[in-house]
Nucleic acid binder design. Structure first.
Lengths: 109, 109
DNA sequence: AAGACTAATCGTAATATTGCGATACGATAA
DNA sequence: TTATCGTATCGCAATATTACGATTAGTCTT
C-alpha cells in the first residue's frame, strides 16, 4: 500500500486535496510568491532564487504547471513563467469556500 | 535525499506548506467536511463514514490533531472530535492572505 | 473478573515525494 | 559547424506518506 485510495472519496474532496498537494512544499510556495511579487514574466532567475539544484527547481516548476497554477512560455533561449490568474482565482475560491463552510462553528469539546 | 530542505525557506513559507500538507489527502478533507457538517462533537462513527481501516483513520485523525485543526475529547469509551475553530480560522486567514496577494495579477505569458 | 467495544500505537509493505548528478535537447553566439 | 547557455528529463538514492493487520490500552457491561 501507500497509494491514496482516491476512489473512496468524492471528486470535490480529491480536487481540494490535490490543490493542497500542489502547495505542500515550501519551494513551491517560494516560487509562487516570487512570481506574485514580480507580477510579471520571470525568465531564468528562479534557480538562483531558490537555492535548490536546477533539476530540483525544474521539477517543482513542472508540478506547478501540472497543477495549472503557473504557465511557461519559451522566450528565446530561456523560459518565462508567470501565475495563471484564472486557475489561481479558482484555487482561491474553492479553498476559500471550503473554509467558510464553518463560519459559525461551535467549539464543543 | 527525499527530505524537504526546509532550512532554505522562510518560516512563513514552511508554515503555509505545512498547512497545505495537512489538507493534502482526501480522507482528511472528508473528515473535516464531516465534522463541519455535523457542527458538533462526533463520537465514533468516523471509521464507518470513511471506508478506510480503523488504523488508517486513526492515523489521519492524528495528523489533523497535530496540525491543530481538530481536537478530541475522551467521552467514556469512545472519543469525540470536533473542529478547532481558532486554528481553522487561522488557516483560513493565512491561506486567504496568500491568495489575495495577487488580486490584480497581469496575465503576461 | 471476564468479555465486548473503541481507539491508539506498532510493525511492516507499498507507493509517493524530494533532491540531485548526468544527460539530452533546443536556441543563441562565435 | 561548434561551443555555450538555459532548461527538461532520466535514473537513482533517501526520505515521507499511506494503508492495514495485529496488538495494546482503556472503558463499559455483565
Amino acid at each position: 500500500m501507500g497509494a491514496t485510495k482516491s476512489d473512496l472519496f468524492t471528486k470535490q474532496q480529491n480536487d481540494i486535496a490535490n490543490m493542497a498537494k500542489a502547495l505542500a512544499h515550501p519551494a513551491r510556495i517560494a516560487i509562487l510568491q516570487y512570481l506574485v511579487k514580480k507580477n510579471a514574466c520571470v525568465c531564468g532567475d528562479l534557480v538562483e532564487e531558490l537555492g535548490l539544484a536546477q533539476a530540483t527547481t525544474s521539477q517543482h516548476l513542472k508540478e506547478l504547471k501540472i497543477a495549472g497554477l503557473i504557465q511557461g512560455t519559451i522566450e528565446g533561449a530561456s523560459v518565462c513563467y508567470c501565475i495563471n490568474p484564472k486557475v489561481w482565482n479558482q484555487y482561491h475560491k474553492i479553498l476559500g469556500t471550503f473554509f467558510t463552510e464553518v463560519q459559525d462553528i461551535k467549539s464543543c469539546c
